[in-house]
Design a protein around this nucleic acid. Sequence first.
DNA 1: TTTTTATTTGGAAGCGCTTCCAAATAATCC
DNA 2: GGATTATTTGGAAGCGCTTCCAAATAAAAA
Lengths: 343, 343
Amino acid sequence: MSSTIYDIAKKANVGIGTVSRVLNKHASVSKKTRKRVLQVISRLNYKPHPYAIGLARQRTNSILFTIPFFATFFFLEILRGIQKRLSDLDVSIILLGINHPDQIAETLRHNIHRHRVDGIVLCSMKIPDQLASNKLFKKIPMVLVDTYHKEFDSIAVNNVQGGYTATKHLLDLGHTKIAMLNANLRSVPAKDRFKGYQMAMIDAHKSLNEQLIQKTKSEYLDGFTRESGYEMMKELLKYGSERPTAVFAASDIQAYGALAAIAEMGLRCPKDIALIGFDDLELSGPLGLTSMLQPMSEMGTLTIDRLLERMNNHDLPLYHKTFEPTLIVRRTTLPLGKIIKSV
Amino acid sequence: MSSTIYDIAKKANVGIGTVSRVLNKHASVSKKTRKRVLQVISRLNYKPHPYAIGLARQRTNSILFTIPFFATFFFLEILRGIQKRLSDLDVSIILLGINHPDQIAETLRHNIHRHRVDGIVLCSMKIPDQLASNKLFKKIPMVLVDTYHKEFDSIAVNNVQGGYTATKHLLDLGHTKIAMLNANLRSVPAKDRFKGYQMAMIDAHKSLNEQLIQKTKSEYLDGFTRESGYEMMKELLKYGSERPTAVFAASDIQAYGALAAIAEMGLRCPKDIALIGFDDLELSGPLGLTSMLQPMSEMGTLTIDRLLERMNNHDLPLYHKTFEPTLIVRRTTLPLGKIIKSV
DNA sequence: TTTTTATTTGGAAGCGCTTCCAAATAATCC
DNA sequence: GGATTATTTGGAAGCGCTTCCAAATAAAAA
């Protein structure tokens, strides 16, 4: 049906080797023949068969994009950055959601063999040392995103700093009873943001009140869900007059749930409770939620650049890049007195 | 590096044909040899090379998932349904965003050749007759989602009915000055929802006030954006006391923008203005937005089922399925007097 | 037992490319 | 001019599978 390299060779009166050389921009083809071949190629609207290339070159031109569970906004943004970079390169992405952290090594191994990927992007999951020492993972190029291990390239956000900045922002507004709505601590970002919260509180000589530190009960998505935020906020509001005056949510999506819980009790942000999230999702603007911005799309493109470099040269020195999140102040943490009308 | 079918054949003392037959569950292999081969396969942790299979079978096991522009929530939900169905089948999805409707035919043609996909899913775009009559598209299995053309299989939502139901809901609440915030009419769903609006108004013997019918000025995403909804709502609010008492937005995302515009003017939903959206996105619950629910994930799985069937048998009769959207009533259209506290 | 028929098996050819080596051609030097 | 070297070219072999046909084996019939 489609034309092949043989058709091109015949029509252009050259050998298949020459056609291949033209396609791959090898130097040793005379200008004249190159032009002739290119003409035939465009006349027949010829496109090389990606699988044949993959088979012959012993590469699949595909990478494994691995995330915990399935699509949340954060990963979609990263993915968008990755796709932007990859669309020119004929590299395809195989999406892999990992259900349980214990299965990382086994699931990865299985999919590496099954899809014969050339490289791996691994998001937000703690890397067990046992995995790092496995020879299979020494051989295949891998870049970590939003997590860290000393033996692999990594692109991350400084979540500790972000947690610190967020908490500091609340402290600066004069709050002292500051609660945190956290996610499951097996999630690296959750743990780090919590660490930042603790550090900021300690630096400000505030006591860490266990009552104000909410832990998610949900397994699903590591607790990075609206429902989880809603539940935890409900808990905090049960304290009545003892309730916190400010809340740091480990993610915007949880903050959305918290907003709903607050509104349901007839309370207002920031008059009754100040609220800050993390991620700066698209809807945080319209909702007026203060948040910590992460350059997710940029992280995605950088990830691919790095992975491609490593695929080309396996012996590159390790690379670790950390982005600093930026505080975006909106209605939910306006200083009292400056409050504008809310939705 | 990885083992091949030859390695398996040698270790199991059979020919490569037999190994292939075992892998593909062909009948004519004796139980004894089958067992022996399977043992070797699992001992060597052998996985067939997907590209070699694709090359030999003359299929790529991939489909093209085509959407206008890039990822909005609606497509993500459809995609989720599709992935659920496809994960078992070793079929991969190539995502393709089309920037301008005029380019559909050309972009599709280019990508069909380039990726050699086995099938196509095409979302929400009007199919030019010129495309339908093209022989390339007669040959390759294709399923339309959220749009219709008599010569292709299609899975759609009854947007006319949805628009009608939404408008009727507002009419039943006693509103007479009902505005519509629309998207670009080249979008099939936008046009149909508008048609439903018109029909409901006419059936209720209400006049169609041109002033109350807002058309998007935005090209981006066909105007299915928060910004567009915000702008259009602003326009409506300029009418002062002449402003509508109820608004039907062509999508939830536009309704979110409208909500912001309403709040900004110090008005409240539903006290001052009742509002209904379309899509029932995840955040419409927490925001209390009344909306029309579409079974998107279900549409996705059905789409794939249908596409696979057609890939297996090209001569199947045409199939058209229409889902009815469901009205989900929330705060923004509560009858006056029943209003609960808002965010 | 021998023939006939049904079941199982082996492996060559082919899918569309890349890559390598040897051969053909062109350019340079004496 | 011929000898030498550099550039360009053709195409066989191989990537890991499927598929088909012919051959081997087993089962059934005579």
